[in-house]
């Protein structure tokens, strides 16, 4: 059945329309804890101009953001804060892990530094580098935009697939020590869940 459409009408799917809107207005939550934060600021500033990708509106309230950019190392005292901020952000939301430290702990293989935030929160895009150049972060944002366009749905069904529920790198056994000992901090942060 053919329908005559006027020239100024485009036919699309609702999912794609929603994804198109979302991907072009990512509002970042700058979780900048260390030197990578400086590059994050440079990315938002005039020379690299993140506004070209619709992601220049850095908000310091997680309620207003949909993209968390973790830039820098996260220590074990900071991780509950990171998780709470992540939970406070509204769906749909995404996370970029910027730099070696946020992704793996980097050179800081010590008792205080979390060895990659993806052990404890879901991460969509990793940016390698120490620190990554602004171009790399922009590339990550463009790739994330592609990803949102590719698999986004208006109801956020892509977030509830089975594959997305797997904790990526959560450790069951520790390389040197075995199972985490009773000398632990769990329990203190009960209110988190």
């Amino acid at each position: 059945m053919a329908i005559e459409l006027p020239d100024n009408v485009v036919v699309s799917k609702l999912d794609e329309l929603a994804s198109w809107c979302r991907k072009n207005s990512l509002w970042p939550m700058p979780f900048a804890t260390a030197c990578c934060g400086i590059e994050l600021m440079a990315t938002g500033a005039s020379r690299h101009d993140l506004a070209r990708f619709g992601a220049e509106v850095f908000r310091f309230s997680p309620r207003q953001c949909d993209l968390m950019i973790v830039a820098g190392r996260v220590v074990m005292k900071m991780l509950p804060v990171l998780q709470r901020i992540w939970q406070q952000m509204h769906e749909p939301k995404w996370c970029i892990s910027m730099g070696a430290c946020a992704s793996t702990g980097g050179v800081f293989d010590t008792y205080a530094v979390v060895q990659g935030i993806d052990r404890f929160i879901p991460v969509d895009m990793y940016v390698p580098g120490c620190p990554p150049r602004p171009e790399q972060l922009i590339q990550a944002i463009m790739d994330l935009q592609d990803k949102i366009q590719r698999e986004g749905t208006i109801m956020g069904d892509e977030f509830s697939t089975q594959a997305r529920q797997q904790p990526k790198r959560a450790l069951v056994e520790l390389p040197i020590i075995g199972r985490p000992s009773a000398a632990c901090v769990r329990g203190t942060y009960e209110g988190l869940r």
């Binding site: 060895q115 929160i121 529920q165 959560a170 020590i177 000398a183």
Partner: peptide, 21 residues
């Protein structure tokens, strides 16, 4: 006598998945 990489404290947090967020 405390190991540089700790006794597992840095790994000991709840893991948030997508569904829990």
């Amino acid at each position: 006598d405390y190991p540089l990489q700790g006794r597992g404290e840095r790994h000991n947090f709840p893991v948030l998945t997508r569904a829990e967020a």
